[in-house]
Simulated scan of single mutants.
Amino acid sequence: MMRRSNSAVRAWRRALPLCLLPALLILLGAAGAQAEPIDLDADNAEIDNARGVSVYTGNVVLTRGPRRITGDRMTVHLREDDAGDQALDHVVVEGEPAVYNQRGGEDRRPIEAEAPRMEYYASGPERVILLEGARLTQGRNTFTGERIEYEVAADRVHARGEPETGRRVQIRLFPDDEDNGDDE
């Protein structure tokens, strides 16, 4: 009899995150407010609907369309959109490292980026800001610096060093890759 009770508890624990997922998607504005749904997976979640802020910890994974963001701690900030619904504003990610991946497409090379701290802004324009020592790989091209900003729609990279410490931006380009998305 004890065995059934333990397996029932294990089944309930596995089902609990699945039960929370619809509430999380509604909270994040995925129910029609944005074109791409948002999926979140974490060990722990604290959701404050009144403030529009959620904190996720423990192997956090956020997936939105071709983008995937991972880290140890993720703070999700919502805003009210024009229709009065909650929509994703920005996400602050901390990790060892925090990682951003974007699948490539017909006209885009894949993006891989990492830094100890990252900010993802869903609009105005959509962008990823990598802080405290960053690396971004676009196809075979690599960029390193203290701060890197990647504008998603424009496919534009801005990198900056840290003059006080003498750290400079380092870039390695493969010019042959510029005309196509094939990195092999």
Rank of each mutant, 00 (worst) to 15 (best):
M2N: 12
N6K: 10
S7A: 09
A8F: 09
A8T: 08
V9S: 09
W12N: 07
R13C: 05
R14K: 15
A15I: 06
A15V: 06
L16R: 12
P17Y: 02
P17T: 05
P17R: 04
L18P: 04
L18E: 12
P22L: 08
L24A: 06
L25K: 12
L25A: 12
I26C: 04
A30N: 01
A31I: 06
A33L: 01
E36F: 00
I38N: 00
I38H: 00
D39C: 04
N44G: 03
R51W: 02
G52N: 04
G52V: 02
V53W: 01
S54C: 02
Y56P: 00
Y56S: 00
V60D: 00
V60N: 00
V61M: 02
L62G: 02
P66Q: 06
R67T: 09
R68Q: 09
T70M: 03
G71W: 00
G71Y: 00
G71E: 01
R73Y: 04
M74D: 01
D85F: 06
V91L: 04
V92L: 13
E94V: 13
G95I: 07
P97G: 05
V99Y: 05
Y100N: 02
N101G: 06
R103D: 15
G104S: 05
G105V: 10
E106I: 11
E106N: 14
P110Q: 08
E114R: 12
E114I: 03
P116Q: 07
E119A: 10
Y121H: 15
A122W: 01
S123F: 07
S123V: 10
G124T: 15
P125L: 13
E126H: 06
V128C: 07
I129Q: 10
L131A: 07
E132S: 11
A134D: 03
T137N: 04
Q138E: 07
Q138W: 02
G139R: 01
R140V: 05
N141C: 09
N141H: 09
F143M: 05
F143N: 03
E146T: 07
I148A: 03
I148Q: 02
Y150C: 04
E151F: 12
D155G: 10
R156V: 09
V157Q: 03
H158S: 13
R160Y: 05
R160G: 13
G161Q: 06
E162C: 14
E164R: 15
G166V: 13
V169N: 11
Q170W: 14
R172Q: 14
R172H: 14
P175G: 08
P175F: 08
